[in-house]
Simulated assay, not measured.
Amino acid sequence: MIDADWPGPDTGSLKERAAKHGGQLGRLLRDARERQGLTLLDVARKGDLNSGTIERWENGILDNFDAVRLRILCSVLEVDHRVAAVALGFVDAEDLRSRP
């Protein structure tokens, strides 16, 4: 999931965050997909998404990133979108634990 030694939220732009944390988000997404036994095509069909986009994101390449598609992908993969936000450096994991 999230690296234990992760330093906290990143203050960079979305493009900078994607470059810095894309690999962490990619691992989160791939792990969730594989846990469910889904192929890229299965996920693409369920979320009406492009399988190439999903594959790039799983590989940490977020060149065409947008929050709407990420939220759809998280829903299909049953990943809490807040955990994805942590993976991208938007919020600190501690922030999620301190809120009800």
Rank of each mutant, 00 (worst) to 15 (best):
Q24D: 09
Q36R: 14
A84Y: 04
L96Y: 08
L88S: 00
D63F: 02
G26M: 12
F65G: 04
Q24W: 00
L40A: 10
D3A: 11
R17S: 05
I54K: 00
R99L: 09
F90M: 02
P100V: 06
T11K: 15
L41M: 08
I72Y: 01
G22C: 03
R35N: 14
S13K: 02
D63Y: 05
K20S: 15
L88R: 01
L14K: 04
R27S: 12
T11E: 01
A85Y: 03
R71D: 12
D48I: 00
G52E: 02
R82K: 07
K46I: 10
L41A: 14
D42T: 10
Q24K: 14
P7V: 05
A67S: 13
L49V: 04
A4S: 09
A93G: 12
E34H: 08
G22N: 07
G8C: 08
N64L: 01
E55I: 00
R45P: 07
T39V: 04
C74G: 11
G8P: 05
C74R: 05
R45T: 15
L96K: 07
A18P: 04
K20G: 01
G22T: 05
D3P: 10
L38H: 09
A18W: 11
D3H: 05
W57I: 11
D42H: 10
M1D: 08
E55N: 15
L28Y: 08
W6K: 05
R69K: 14
A44H: 14
L28Q: 01
R30C: 15
R56D: 12
S98A: 15
A87M: 07
G23C: 02
D95L: 13
A18S: 12
V91D: 01
S13P: 00
W57M: 13
L28C: 01
M1P: 02
P9W: 00
D31K: 15
A32V: 10
A32E: 11
G12W: 07
D63S: 12
G8T: 01
N50Y: 10
L29N: 12
I72T: 14
A93S: 09
E58G: 03
G26A: 15
E58A: 03
G89C: 11
G12H: 04
M1E: 00
